[in-house]
Amino acid sequence: MNWIAVNSIYKFEMARFFRTITQSFVSPVLSTSLYFVVFGAAIGSRIQEVEGISYGAFIVPGLIMLSVITQSISNASFGIYFPKFIGTVFELLSAPINFIEIVLGYVGAAATKALFIGVIILMTAFFFVDITIAHPFWMVVFLVLTCISFSLFGFIIGIWAGNFEQLQLVPLLIITPLVFLGGSFYSISMLPPVWQVISHFNPVVYLISGFRWSFFGAADVPIVTSLLAIAGFTALCLAVIWWIFRTGWRIRQ
């Protein structure tokens, strides 16, 4: 393993993040606060409780997941797309490194950034609602796994994308609907039966459910299923990335 290279990529990517630290910091804090005002205070005052939890607190895990998933994807996809776009990718291709090292560097940095944002949102949430975390260990596990798996997914999108529009396309057309329909702001059990069944085909449901369980001890789906779902998704992304580098698809002519 060329750990120095992994570390170099990681640091280089993190430096980009810290250069724009204010934007990186302000925008999630602002949007989370808005969500709390709109959903928590305005709508929440009419909903009162979901599964015995105040609505304001109930949406916290979903809000964190929403941001962490979109951040992971956009960080990782941009991270690898940008060198392709400006041509500096030649350096990665001609360096004595393998795909595992490239992925560790880029995905590691993207996941770290997303994790950072997730933590900020959680801290912001403490200002608005009372929450206690029932299973802190599992909360961290879910959070970290989500950051990693969706950064891997973003990495794939970044390699696939041929232009900036395509870079936005998948997050916009697939991920945002899946996350919104994945129970970020409601419990699946609140849906009509047909939609409950359909929801079980949405992988994000398992994530949010598991993550919410780590906060409140209640879940829409069994916790093991959630863990298996996220492990399966991670494995799938890893397999695709392995194939990409084996064949040089979209990176090596």
């Binding site: 570390n7 170099s8 350096e91």
Partner: peptide, 30 residues
């Protein structure tokens, strides 16, 4: 191998020293 490509491919917002340091690191040199 060291390679100087034909096209000028550089990250516009990076500093000279950090981009050079990055290259060294990529090749696994301390």
């Amino acid at each position: 191998i060291g390679l100087v490509p034909q096209e000028i491919n550089l990250e516009p917002f990076e500093k000279v020293i950090s981009t050079v340091r990055f290259s060294r690191g990529l090749f696994g040199k301390p």
